[in-house]
Computed example of a mutant assay.
Amino acid sequence: MCVYTRSGKGRYGEVWLGEWGGESVAIKIFTSQDEDSWAREGEVYGTYMLHHDNIAKFIACDKRPLNLGFELWMVMEYHHNGSLLDFLLIHSLTAYQAQRFVYSIASGLHYLHVDIQTGAQIKPGIAHRDLKSKNILVKSDHSCCISDFGLAVRHVGATGHVDISSINPRQGTKRYMAPEILDGSINYTKFDSYKMVDMYCFGLIIWEVARRTSNRAEEYQLPYFQHVSHDPSMDDMRKVVCTDSIRPTIASWWSEDEVNLVCAQIEMMIIT
């Protein structure tokens, strides 16, 4: 494998562009402090039947020696458009692109959430727990795929047990946290609770897409940009989302655009 360009930096480490077998690949390099997230993501990708056009393709993972320690590598399919956040920052969308983005994310999320049984083999339901525009990749055909499963939980259908890492207490990105996480009312023993959290995040992502759609597209902004700083605290988000019951603003002009009107209707059903 040849590694030659750093292409980004995330919460858990760096992402490099490399080459493997003549093909470009993305190499996520985790620090040793984030071994739990690296291991969890590897476990999730090892789940039976976790292959779908709208889920990022896993290639390999490895623990590599470095000086007196080690690096944790995860090799993934490379998508030159980057994340949905990156794409929305510099591109406004046509109605067709917006529909394709939202539909493909919904398709990937639905496949993650459902239990599937084929003979004796079972694909458990999986909830992402950190869904956001930065963790969605834009493919060359302008469909999307969901990535970054370091916080994911799996559903053991036969027992109803939720398989969650007990050594990684992170609960996702504060800006995207659902009200029931912020106010502590979530039932952590029920898998449906985690699916509902993912759906709330999906509603916020629809809002991000809708703002950048049509010839009246607005400047890209993160959800709740008018109400909190770039790096809000849990208390900041709890006040806005739970105490003040604020939700992202639906622009008046969306009602004049068929695609954005549909997006707004879906989003409001999800996040209210």
Rank of each mutant, 00 (worst) to 15 (best):
Y224W: 04
S140A: 13
Y103V: 10
M177I: 00
F30S: 15
L151T: 09
E208L: 03
G82K: 08
D148R: 11
M268T: 13
E41D: 08
V102D: 06
E23F: 05
E14K: 14
L68W: 04
Y78V: 06
H142C: 07
V15G: 02
E41F: 01
R170T: 08
F101Y: 10
Y48N: 13
S233D: 07
L151W: 03
V138P: 11
Q265G: 07
K195V: 15
H51Y: 06
F191M: 10
Y220W: 11
W16G: 13
Y48M: 11
R211H: 06
P124V: 03
G13E: 01
S83M: 07
S185N: 10
E219S: 14
G160P: 04
G18Y: 02
V240A: 06
W16A: 11
H227N: 13
L93Y: 08
L72R: 14
S166Y: 00
A152T: 03
Y103A: 13
T5F: 04
N260M: 09
S193V: 03
R211W: 01
E41N: 10
N81F: 09
V162R: 01
H142P: 00
Y176L: 07
I136T: 07
D53F: 01
K132E: 12
S37H: 11
I270T: 01
M74C: 03
H80T: 08
L72C: 14
T173R: 08
G184T: 03
